[in-house]
Design a protein around this nucleic acid. Structure first.
Lengths: 233, 233
DNA sequence: CGCAAGCATGCTGCATGCAGAATTTTGTTT
DNA sequence: AAACAAAATTCTGCATGCAGCATGCTTGCG
């Protein structure tokens, strides 16, 4: 719900235009960026592999120009690396890279939590709680996908409530880097239960507007996440 | 000294290759990115103004293709905004944007300081101290430019000592956003003195490996920075 | 005289073409 | 047979050309 979508070629996170407004023509550029990003996350483009402009362009059905532009964009996100004259390579994240990113993410979410405790209205917090409960419902009945959405939604909700665009922006970048790792680093549901419990605690702290408790809960959650994904690097 | 330079088209912050190594051919792409970024920072391209691909390309002496690629890159940094079919516009930062960014920056530097207190060697901290003292020397004799370098160097030094690439990366992005504001938001030297005092305190805390004190010093410094630049937005 | 519809211009988005560099393959020499 | 060198192929980087859309102006009508 309330998903942030990329509109325009900028790739910036822009909030959804609710209802009418200037129609956002889906630009080819953005489509390619999203598509290639997904290909990286799903492993279709393995880490460390060379990206061949001609081939990939042909499989995507676009010419090299917009594809190159998209690769430049992904390079600035840190998902691919460009060597001049040598083309693009899907970036290899080391275990340290992943851990470092998680440390920063936990810190950013801690800040977001503090800001959210200050700025969020009771109604907004209640919405997060309801969102969470609804997702837990889904999670208990089904399998992987709802869990994924649950996991993402609670974190992005805190970011949203912080009402700090810059914060959401840098958080999004690091989040994007880790999506591939998260994608392959999740085992059985027994681990999910712990994550759901973490989320419960996070929401509880938010409802109590206890920034310190929230921050600690986020740190613990981060460490547990690291344990869950470290083998995947 | 020890300036991080952008090598490769990626625009990632890559540490300088000290000595020989694969020659970093200065790619046109990077040159354009840097040039246009500087044009924005120096006000040659005013905030809110439309960027005309044809014109700008002609004045830079390049064709539209690499220029467009560079604009895509800058868009992902958040310095320009792209509307599909409508071209690029230099982003207007609101006062809230700037303040939000400063809040996040202070937080990131606080994390960097904590990590630096843990991971930096005594020698490394001593180097930062020497760097600082040298810059203060320069600052007392001369004028604006040394102050600028002083200001940047101390902050990037802490980031470096944190030894967390992801942290340095997101910090660099936000820093780039604010360079324009910092550029126009500095008045007389009487304000600089306060900043230098802040830096003194920051280094002191680092030497004492007192993360809390360091964090607080950084927060205070951020608030003072905000007072200094808020009128420039 | 004001407003709206249509037209003209110009710009963006994308494809293609060409030159230079990188890589691979092949041929030659030791 | 192995190693080096040279040529050929392939790929990247950049320029240009063309189509479609956005914008501003002009003209016709109320």
């Amino acid at each position: 719900m309330d998903e942030t979508v990329t509109i325009g070629t900028s790739g910036q996170l822009i909030e959804e235009l609710d209802g009418r407004g200037p129609i956002a023509r889906p630009s080819l550029h953005d489509a390619i960026v999203t598509r290639v990003r997904d290909m990286i996350i799903e492993g279709e483009l393995p880490a460390g592999s060379r990206i061949h402009e001609g081939n990939l362009g042909k499989t995507l059905g676009v010419s090299r120009t917009p594809l190159r532009e998209a690769l430049k964009f992904l390079a600035s996100e840190g998902l691919v690396e460009l060597s001049p004259g040598r083309g693009a390579v899907v970036r290899q994240f080391t275990a340290k890279d992943v851990h470092d990113s998680l440390v920063v993410l936990a810190d950013l979410e801690g800040l977001a939590g503090r800001l959210a405790c200050e700025h969020a209205s009771d109604d907004e917090i209640r919405e997060v709680r309801e969102l969470h409960d609804r997702m837990v419902d889904l999670y208990e009945k089904r399998d992987r996908l709802p869990y994924f959405k649950l996991n993402q939604s609670i974190h992005s909700a805190i970011l949203r409530l912080s009402k700090n665009e810059a914060l959401g922006y840098v958080h999004g970048i690091l989040q994007a880097r880790l999506r591939r790792i998260r994608y392959i680093g999740n085992e059985g549901p027994e681990k999910w239960a712990a994550a759901v419990a973490d989320h419960e605690e996070i929401i509880g702290a938010l409802e109590a507007r206890d920034a310190d408790r929230l921050s600690e809960a986020l740190t613990i959650h981060m460490e547990r996440t690291w344990e869950r994904v470290r083998h995947a690097v």
